[in-house]
Design a protein around this nucleic acid. Sequence first.
DNA 1: AGGTTAATTAACCGGAAGGTTTCATGGCCG
DNA 2: CGGCCATGAAACCTTCCGGTTAATTAACCT
Lengths: 118, 118
Amino acid sequence: MAATDPLNATFAALSDPTRRAILVRLSAGEATVKALAEPFDMSLPAISKHLRVLERAGLVTRGRNAQWRPCRLEAGPLQEASAWLGQYRAFWEARLDRLETYLRELQSQDRPDGPSRP
Amino acid sequence: MAATDPLNATFAALSDPTRRAILVRLSAGEATVKALAEPFDMSLPAISKHLRVLERAGLVTRGRNAQWRPCRLEAGPLQEASAWLGQYRAFWEARLDRLETYLRELQSQDRPDGPSRP
DNA sequence: AGGTTAATTAACCGGAAGGTTTCATGGCCG
DNA sequence: CGGCCATGAAACCTTCCGGTTAATTAACCT
């Protein structure tokens, strides 16, 4: 529990749908700021700010090619976030197990009469 | 991509270290608000607010037992968040593969002279 | 009834987030 | 050189966030 846990920045960055969409886009390869902004109904500086947030969270790095600054996805923080969530895997699997059991009970209750279609 | 993607609320809730700690605590079993507040140097209403954020994100549900309102962890949204992150698993595994390759290269370069200790 | 305990509500505050517009920089190209 | 093009920076506004204190509800226990 460091003073500034990197998970803070990672999850905060992921909490915005625009930024998540940008990451999805970047998983298909590098892109310039303008190209990233194109799908959104939003000014260019707004996208630039989103990219800065992603950059400070370590989710994106940028190259320098002439007047373009291509953005590249960095998956490290995503992996750490995923690892944190993995802590609860047993939890939701238990939940699914219970649901499965429940569904199986329903099924065996239906069996005697067969399926009924209204 | 709904107007209000539940991932927004989930990731936003997870971006606060106090809330993450609360979730960790709840993974060990139900707890009252006061019990949850105890480890933190923070007023009770502050914790109450955090719990409301977690509740609205569907990460926590609450029972009613006399004057206590025990909180229970709900792992569903965590699973969805994890699923979203899983989209990038190939990405970071590729990164690790490259690191592994790099380390192996370093190792084979060291081999001829053997390890040197300054 | 009266008091204690658990928890929420309300009002407030400082600061950060997310957006805008405007201006500045820096590299290509005609 | 002159100008366009891609991007970053600054100033500003509004809303949300995380915290506080003080007051309120609700349930238990004499």
